[in-house]
């Protein structure tokens, strides 16, 4: 099939940007969306033009590196899917696909489709860890964890930090990421000693970069791991208790 790609091109953070349209021929339906961008870049390089800058790493949906707005949706139209796992079988011959970078004050644009998501690292630094004595590994089952709690903690821990939640949010809020990172530690016994400090630290750091949650639920719909906004309720509850 042949598709038309309308891609955001911007040489640098302070340069003006605009869409450019490229025609790509012989696209196969087994191609991932990133492979489509690879084909485009090979085409551009062959023509002696600047390739499109975009982030990617594992290409199997677990690293959180990739992520662009595809036709107005973070990671494109398929639920529970990162851009690398979106396949061209979803598209038809002759389709025009619009590709734009994630837009948020917390994610400054670097080039073309690449944004700097290190604000997420700042949030993690503000409390997304547990302080433990290092040394020999603890005995298995030394700390008992109820199955329900570990399941929920693992649901939250699926977050790959791609930033689609911020990109999809009409307010540019970082709630779902922060809530997931808080929940996967706050739900487990190992996370309890620092629970309050962690919650206050991460929420306040989050608010330095991102907007506020108005409960649209767009984040959860865009999340490649389909993380529930129930974790945001948990963040709200933990913050309330920590600040009391």
């Amino acid at each position: 099939m042949n598709v038309h790609l309308k891609v955001w091109r911007q040489a640098g953070p302070d340069e003006p940007g605009d869409f450019e349209t490229y025609d790509i021929a012989d696209v196969t339906e087994e191609m991932s969306f990133l492979e489509l961008l690879d084909v485009l870049n090979e085409q551009l390089v062959a023509e002696g033009r600047e390739p499109v800058a975009f982030d990617s790493d594992c290409r199997e949906g677990i690293c959180g590196s990739c992520g662009v707005m595809i036709d107005g949706q973070a990671h494109g139209p398929q639920r529970g899917t990162a851009t690398c796992q979106l396949h061209m079988r979803l598209y038809n011959d002759g389709d025009t696909i619009v590709v734009e970078p994630f837009r948020s004050a917390g994610f400054p644009l670097v080039k073309d489709l690449v944004v700097n998501r290190s604000a997420f690292d700042r949030i993690i630094e503000a409390g997304g860890f547990i302080t433990v004595p290092t040394g020999s590994a603890p005995d298995a089952n030394l700390t008992l964890v109820p199955k329900e709690d570990s399941d929920r903690a693992m649901d939250a821990a699926q977050c790959i930090g791609c930033g689609a939640c911020v990109a999809a949010c009409p307010n540019g809020a970082g709630q779902l990421f922060t809530a997931a990172k808080l929940a996967h530690l706050n739900l487990l016994p190992q996370g309890q000693p620092e629970r309050q400090r962690r919650t206050i630290g991460m929420v306040e750091e989050m608010e330095n970069y991102f907007g506020s949650c108005t409960n649209h639920r767009e984040c959860s719909a865009a999340c490649p791991k389909e993380i529930s906004i129930d974790f945001i309720a948990m963040l709200n509850r933990d913050f309330r208790k920590a600040r009391r």
């Binding site: 707005m69 949706q73 619009v98 009409p170 307010n171 540019g172 809020a173 907007g211 506020s212 108005t214």
Partner: peptide
């Protein structure tokens, strides 16, 4: 929230939820 997205999306947003 306005400050959190100073540069708006240029393409049309497609809201899901």
């Amino acid at each position: 929230n306005r400050r959190a997205r100073p540069v708006q999306y240029v393409s049309k947003r497609d809201y899901v939820a």
